[in-house]
């Protein structure tokens, strides 16, 4: 890998005071950005510059900065989590950009993810979907049995684990031309439907989660497959198919 160097970039960032305000794209020049810095560090650098200029810093979501919490979002140059595949925004580095580049940074765009401020969106719609059925009811009165006591076929366990890798970041919704949340819901439905512990409530779960998804105002899946490509965790479209199957089965019951 070539040694780090400093680049000068132009940023076009969505600025919006609050949920009700009308936002717009604003342009910022940022010089001496190290290509060794991460994308979020670059934004930190911009904010420092803005604070020094006595301007409002750009609000953006972040937490773990190691690709597992699902907090960071950002639609970078027309792609969710930026140009890399299989990574979150916090895992994106400035070495992916060149001197003189113009970088567009926008929030996730979805009716169900309203902008809170600047690049921060409210993703609690995902929480409500999860609350509608994304759990297994267990009696926790003290006589719980070891989960490993129930045999699970390796194949199913692997598929469930892959589905459970979903961090709920919302890139699928952001990138879908229909603003559909079906990859997220598909992953959450699959994660439980594949395991014996989850089968007990499978019927109600899929009906309730899909109903909640529709109520939140997400769009409808048209199988473009964009979500699968942009998902930082590589959640497969097979999970949407599994949800479709589960739902059909549940509806006919």
């Amino acid at each position: 890998m070539s040694a780090a160097k400093n680049i000068n970039i132009t940023l076009k960032i969505w600025r919006q005071k609050n949920a009700k305000a009308k936002g717009q794209i604003e342009t910022y020049k940022l010089n001496n950005v190290s290509t060794a810095s991460s994308f979020l560090e670059m934004l930190d650098q911009l904010n420092e510059q803005l604070i020094n200029e006595k301007k409002e810093p750009v609000a953006f979501d972040h937490d773990c900065r190691e690709g597992i919490c699902g907090m960071c979002s950002l639609y970078i140059n027309g792609r969710a989590h930026g140009p890399d595949t299989g990574t979150t925004t916090c895992q994106l580095h400035m070495r992916k950009f060149n001197d003189g580049d113009t970088i567009y940074i926008e929030p996730w765009r979805s009716k169900a993810f309203p902008v809170v401020k600047d690049l921060v969106v409210d993703r609690s719609a995902f929480d409500r979907i999860q609350q509608a059925g994304g759990f297994v009811s267990v009696n926790t009165s003290g006589r719980t049995i070891d989960a490993n006591a129930i045999p699970v076929p390796k194949h199913d366990a692997d598929r469930a684990f892959e589905a459970a890798a979903c961090i709920g970041c919302g890139a699928c919704v952001a990138t879908c031309k229909n603003g559909s949340a079906m990859l997220f819901v598909g992953a959450k439905v699959s994660q439980y439907a594949l395991l014996p512990q989850g089968k007990v409530e499978a019927t109600q779960r899929v009906l309730n989660m899909v109903r909640q998804m529709d109520e939140e105002g997400f769009g409808n899946c048209t199988n473009t497959g964009a979500c699968e490509v942009e998902c930082p965790k590589g959640i497969s479209l097979e999970n949407i198919a599994r949800m479709n199957r589960e739902y059909l089965k549940a509806s006919l019951k």
């Binding site: 076009k12 765009r109 769009g219 473009t224 942009e230």
Partner: peptide, 17 residues
């Protein structure tokens, strides 16, 4: 309706046909 405000810059050809 699910996306009232669109993206200023979008690059869908990178991820779908």
């Amino acid at each position: 309706k699910a996306r009232p405000i669109g993206y200023a810059k979008n690059n869908p050809s990178k991820n779908s046909s």
